[in-house]
């Protein structure tokens, strides 16, 4: 590293006021031999091509298709923003889907995630049977959400479900999954059951890594346990917090399998992802209309991603 012949001290330049950054840049470029450049070009190029082909290509295609009424067979016909107008004005499942996606996100962020954090803090105190509790809470995370959907059906089913039997309501059963006013809550319960375990295990790992001397120092300074947690422990776990936040948002937007397993995401369980699938996949083939729904979902997701990136970049710049 230090044997480069172009080190500034050995440079032929005599001008002391020459821009130092220039010579530094030149040195950096020179360090990349032709072989390095080839390797870089190939690796970056491959990544770029894959990214363009697999991510941005389909994205642009979706956006383009969303302004047509293509059904997969016919010729492309431009319909302008008609699909978007129809979605907002004459497609009742859309409003229910947006409401459910917002509920989903809010429930995971405000109920399931804090609950996971609480469990992690409790388990971190090495209470008795802590390993047992850990496995019990973590178990649902191993299950796919589709499986959670099937389990939810066994628990919530109106006629033979376990919950109505437990509540002693065999004669006047509650229709947990069929009643569109309550089924989203029943499903959120099941989805939250899984999310709590996921968040708990992440925070448990984070808590184990917090330097105990920080807590000691806070205690010596006279901080109460609650103060120590909120002012010392939680800020120390910032990377974990960000990961949990990202996971929560992703889970909220990509929610699909559990409602699809329960009733194909209809009758009160509409989600944007389900509407996209229902219109595009399947015999319906309203590809233009479904693409418009997908673009709306993309815009919402981009909103979160851009906010997150701006936050991260601002942190880095500081």
């Amino acid at each position: 590293m230090t044997t480069t012949p172009l080190a500034p001290s050995a440079g032929a330049t005599t001008s002391s006021d020459g821009p130092p950054s220039g010579s530094r840049r030149a040195r950096r470029v020179r360090r990349l031999g032709p072989r390095d450049i080839t390797v870089l070009a190939v690796l970056l190029g491959a990544a770029l091509v894959l990214d363009l082909a697999l991510v941005w290509g389909p994205t642009v295609a979706s956006i383009t298709l969303s302004f047509t009424d293509w059904n997969g067979i016919s010729d492309l016909r431009w319909v302008g923003t008609e699909n978007y107008q129809d979605i907002v004005s004459t497609y009742p499942p859309f409003q229910r889907a947006v409401r459910n996606n917002v509920l989903w996100l809010a429930f995971l962020a405000l109920v399931a995630t804090p609950l996971g954090l609480l469990f992690a803090v409790l388990l971190d105190r090495e209470i008795r049977f802590t390993r047992f509790y850990q496995s019990a809470f973590y178990l649902p995370v191993v299950l796919s959400l589709a499986i959670v959907g099937f389990i939810a059906q066994l628990v919530y089913a109106r006629d033979y479900g376990a919950l109505n039997a437990l509540l002693g309501r065999e004669n006047n059963p509650i229709d947990w999954l069929g009643d569109p006013d309550i089924n989203i809550w029943a499903v959120l319960g099941a989805a939250g059951w899984r999310h709590v375990g996921y968040v708990m295990i992440l925070y448990l790992a984070g808590l184990k890594a917090v330097d105990p001397s920080l807590k000691e120092a806070a205690a010596i300074d006279g901080a109460s346990e609650v103060q120590t947690f909120f002012r010392v422990t939680l800020p120390t776990m910032r990377p974990i917090n960000i990961i949990v936040l990202v996971i929560t948002v992703i889970e909220g937007l990509r929610a699909f399998d559990i409602v699809y397993a329960i009733n194909n995401g209809r009758n009160g369980l509409e989600l944007l992802s389900v509407l996209v699938t229902e219109n595009i996949v399947g015999e319906a083939s309203r590809i233009g209309f479904g693409s418009a729904l997908a673009v709306i979902l993309l815009v919402i997701a981009l909103g979160f991603i851009v906010t997150y990136l701006v936050q991260i970049l601002r942190e880095d710049r500081r």
């Binding site: 890594a209 330097d211 300074d221 002012r231 010392v232 800020p235 120390t236 910032r238 990377p239």
Partner: peptide
């Protein structure tokens, strides 16, 4: 927070 730890590399 009295411990502006977030700007420093984390040991954990």
């Amino acid at each position: 927070s009295p411990f502006p730890s977030s700007r420093f590399p984390h040991p954990h």
